[in-house]
Structure formats: C-alpha cells, structure tokens
Nucleic acid binder design. Structure first.
Lengths: 347, 347
DNA sequence: TTGAAAGCGCTAACAG
DNA sequence: CTGTTAGCGCTTTCAA
C-alpha cells in the first residue's frame, strides 16, 4: 500500500495496542495469542476480538528475541527446477505441518560459496534446525553448522561423514547395483551419459560405483557423453544420437538422471531401435514423469519424499525436550524399477 | 551437534564476545560487521579477525528488532513441482541477488486457508515485501497485506484488482488468442483438456477466454476432459485417448498445460495419428521440456522468468528511499509458439 | 573515529 | 487467573 503524503506514517500495531483496546495487560494478551497458561474464557474472548478487530499480526522478531526460540527450519537445496527436490520438500512439509515448525527454503545452485552465503544468512535467524542437501560443504559452512548448536540433517547422500545426522541413499551403492543388474541381464557394451557438473557429488558417486562394479565383472564403460545446460530431455535425445553414432556397438546406456534417460528413450523409439532387445536403457530417480512415457524406462527410486519425511522427523525429535538427542544416521534403500528397458537378453 | 553431558551448554556467541576478544566496544564491532560509519582500518582488522576466529554469526533477530529493518522478501506460491514456479523463482533470485534482499519461499498448495496461514507466518517476521501468486485471496489475507504497509506484488495474473502492484499476463486474453489462432488455422471441432482444480484461477480464466473467443466465431467446445492428481504426462495420454474415442470428430485439442499436452502428443504419435493434419494440439506455458519432444507442441510462453524479475525489481524500487512508491501494474504479453502442432489446414 | 545510554516488542520468571 | 519486572542482542542516537 502507498500512503498519500498526508497520512501519518502508520506505526505497526503492537501488543500494547491490543492491550489498550481490550483493557487487558500485555502479558495476558500475549498469553492468549499464544495459547499459553491459564486465561479465563471471558478474557480470551475480549483479547481475541480486539486483536482481530485491529488486524494485529504479532511481531515474531521480538518474540523470538525474548524467548530465544524460532520456529523456522532452514532447508538448503541446490535447485528447485530439478524434479527431485520438490518431492523432498513435499515430504518435509507433510511432517512439519502441524508441528509448529516452518520450513524456509534457500537455493544454492550447486555452488559451494552460495551455499555458504545462504547458510550464513539463515543461521543468523537462529532457526531450530537445518536440513541441507549433500555431505560436501566448505570448511566455513561446516564450521558454522558445528557451532550453531542446532540439529543439522544432511540429506540425499550417506557416502561420507555427516556433521550431525544424515538421511539418504548410498549413491555409490546405487551405481553398483544398477551395474550388477545390467550385467546380469546380459549387456556388455555399456555407455554412460550424464551431466557435466563437477559439483554434483551424488551423480559423481553413482558414476564411480557404477564403473567399480563393472570393473569387478571385467567390464568397462565403452563410451561417455556429458552435457550441461539446456533442456535435459532434448539433451538426452541429442547425446543418445551422438553416442550411438560414434559407438554403434553399445548395447546399454546408463543415464545419470531420468530426464535425459527419457530423452534417450524417445530418440530410440523414434528411430525404431529395438529397446531393450538391441539396446537397453536406465535412468535414475524414479520421477513421476516416466509414467507418462510410452515405454517404462528402467530407473531407481531414490526415496525422495521418504528422505524428506525422515529428515523432518529428526528435526522435530531433536527439538523435543526429554528425547534422545543423539545424531541419527539413516540409509534408505533405493529400489530398482526394471520397467521395460532393462530385461534379460536372449543370447 | 550433540553435546556430551559434561560440556557446559554452549551459549551462542554475541557481539559482546567479539567486543571482549578484540578489545573494541560493542558499538564499533557492530559498525565493522555492517560496514557502517567510519572505523579505522586498524580497528576493522582487529574486529574481523576476532569475529572470524570465534566463528561469530550475527543475530539478525536482535538486529532486526533494533533497526526495524528485515532483508527478507516473502515469496508465496502454490506449488514447487509445477515447472512454472521454478522459473519465476529463478527470475526473482537473479534480481534480488546482490540487492541485499533475500527471498523466502512459502508454499500454499493452491489452498486459500493455507495461503492465509503462510502469509500470517511470514508477515509476522516483518519482511520488506511480499511477492504472491494470483489475485484471489481470502478477505483476511487481503486485509493482512493491506495493513502490513510493505510493498505487495501479485504475480502471474492481471485479470483482477490488485492490492498494490501486479505483474503478469492476462490469462483470459491468452485463452482468447489461442482460440483465434486455432480458428484461423481452420480447425472447427475443438476439445478441451485440463485440470479439475477449481482453485486454479488462472487455468479457469484461460478456459473462459478460450470459450468466449470461440463463441464469437460461432463455435463451441465439442468435448472436455478433466483430471486431478497423478503424473500429468500420463494423464495427458489417458485423457487424450479417452476423448478421441468418445469424440472422434475432434480436430483440435487445447490443453490447459504443456505437460498434459505433451502426453497427448505422445499418444497421437504412438497411434500414428497425423498431427497437425488430422488433429491439431496446443498447450500452455512454454516449458523447456517441450524442446525435447520429437515434435514441437504449440504453446504460449507466459514469460515466467520475466514476471519474476519485474516483481523483484518493484520490491527493490519500493524499498529504495526517494523513489516513486506508486503501485505498478505491468502486463506481460505472452507469445504463441506455433511449433508443429498448430498449422493451417488444407481444406 | 569511538563510546555510552536507551530502547526495539516481546516473553520468562516471579509475585500476587 | 492476572500483572509486574527485567531483560533478549542488537542498533539508534547522542556525546565525547
């Protein structure tokens, strides 16, 4: 709202205003508005009426300073446009709703300095907890979380040493298991397609686990293709076309995410390539999108919403007095969905 | 972090700690940490060293209470999983970055009561502005925003009366223009497919504009199909199959979003239906995803990131002293992308 | 260039 | 059940 110059600059309403309007002490007004302590029904009514009438919105800044309590939970994630973090957020929100705690989201764009900055900003509001994606942080970020003396839950990944609690899957293991499934199905000439993102540690770990398991079976990746930026679906098509042109002997393509995998699948379908006969495909994440494709892409459900729920539960538990406040480490087991693009090959 | 029982409960660091560690008054420490006022280089050094050494993170709660200034901007959107709001967020973040203001995101799930609750929660932190999706709010929400006396920018939609500023497109007009383009291309038996979401006002307005323009040309929608929940892509396939089975005479399908449109397109392709010869298709939003499809779906780019940028600019301007603080109303013009699914038909 | 005092709006703790 | 007092940790304001 813009005030016309003549209006006196409106002073935000305070407890005192409600107190005066209702003829009840500030303290009692505060009690009513927070549902704390015993207040007679008559008084409550009066106070609530006055507060509503005036349109009073409490000042949590002052409240938080006085009570040393903040009902905010900092959630720090790399990206929103990812299909994966929205699911995590849904899980977090589900659990936090009704707990009195409120998630506040910060985005890092996969950049450690930005993460540090967002973290600093959020910690300066003294939240009741931090949920943060990944185990890799700058020393400064790590130190801040250590010193904050609030519950910290690192999510998505369990391959590393957490600051406090963690909930996630082992991406190394995920990569290994997918490799084993592919080998078991009889594929031998395997290509890898992924993002050119050195800072996406989870993708990197899956790749490492994948190659490791192949090596154990005496195999290695025949060809690779990486992309950055642009529409993942389109990139998936392009990369698939490119890699198959370059290495026609490939009989399996492992994609680092479902979106490029879907692009690859669409490419194969449009070229009339026999999937999974001539070539098998698999992605990663288990995104809902896949259900809409004409053929079900093999993938691995990373349990995203469960991760969100568990993380939120830990934060709540750690904020409950008289509870065990030990760090919790929780490994979720991802589940391979074979779909129709990863099937035993006839020799 | 969990303290072992023997550790004394750590008291969060305060300015005073830095003051004592550096031998400089609290006030001067505060000046250094905020880069305010003149402080000798020597003193600055000392203070910064002490702060870093201790790992001091300022308490913004106390700072905000004292200064009556909060660098937070409340951003209230219905959903994250939508493909549309991430783009808006990107625009907002781009502009806010480096302005000293920080976006804080709240999610309403398209539910007015939830919006009210999120708004109340956020306003109680006295942010420097509100960016909120849509023009439809409960009376209580509206009143809160009126009374907050901070800049409020309603985004996405301009068909209605804003509380203060607004930036968006006219969805009614968007619907009308798509109808005109379809008619002009020679299609006559038009079907509509959309979400069963009475609270998605923008989708509703597009539908209204669409039918209105058809009516003006003496046409009306021949058949409709609605969905809720599930994978939009999959629903697009299913609905398209259903509507074409029921009404084989249809020669155009207008989808209320690109995701179901893409599903419809995939269905048609897999059935060997001639698009756009036998049947034309169009979606809405201009999402990046479309670029990966084998055929380019007609759509309308709603200028999402521009909306985000403009909204953020307004918030910044309104927080700059000595600027014109009049409400701003900005209509973005959406652009039809004809793709390959909306083309003049040969008679 | 630095410091001291006052107080932001609320709640913890205690008294009645 | 209700009220009083004393801060929470900073910044504003004023004085040195």
């Amino acid at each position: 709202m813009t005030s016309t110059p003549s209006e006196p600059p409106r002073r935000p309403l305070t407890l005192r205003d409600v107190s005066e309007a209702s003829g009840v002490s500030e303290m009692t007004v505060s009690r009513v508005l927070r549902n704390r302590g015993d207040v007679s029904e008559r008084t409550r009514e009066k106070v609530r009426a006055a507060a509503k009438e005036l349109g009073y919105v409490p000042n949590k800044i002052a409240g938080a300073l006085a009570s040393q309590r903040v009902n905010l939970v900092a959630v720090i994630i790399p990206s929103m446009s990812n299909m994966v973090f929205p699911d995590v957020m849904t899980g977090i929100t589900e659990v936090l709703d009704g707990s009195g705690l409120q998630p506040v989201i910060g985005i890092t764009g996969y950049r450690p300095e930005k993460e540090e900055q967002v973290l600093y900003e959020m910690l300066s509001w003294r939240p009741s907890g931090v949920i943060i994606a990944g185990l890799e942080h700058t020393d400064a970020s790590r130190a801040m979380m250590q010193n904050a003396d609030i519950p910290v839950v690192e999510i998505m990944d369990v391959d590393g040493k957490p600051i406090d609690s963690m909930v996630g899957i082992s991406h190394r293991r995920a990569g290994r298991e997918m490799a084993k499934a592919i080998i078991k199905a009889g594929y031998e000439n395997i290509g890898f397609l992924g993002t050119k993102m050195p800072l996406d540690h989870r993708a990197r770990k899956r790749f490492e686990g994948f190659t490791e398991a192949l090596a154990k079976a005496g195999l290695e990746i025949q060809d690779k293709e990486f992309y950055s930026g642009g529409s993942a679906l389109a990139k998936g098509r392009e990369m698939t076309e490119a890699i198959l042109k370059r290495s026609p002997e490939l009989d399996f393509l492992y994609y680092s995410n479902d979106m490029i995998g879907a692009g690859g699948l669409l490419h194969c379908l449009s070229k009339g390539i026999d999937v999974p006969g001539q070539i098998g495909l698999a992605g990663f994440n288990g995104v809902e999108l896949l259900q809409g494709l004409p053929v079900q892409l093999a993938t691995m459900d990373a349990g995203r919403s469960e991760i969100g729920r568990k993380a939120a539960e830990i934060i709540i538990r750690r904020n409950t007095p008289d509870q065990d406040h030990a760090p919790e480490r929780l490994e979720i087991s991802p589940v391979i969905q074979f779909g129709e693009t990863l099937k035993r090959r006839r020799k």
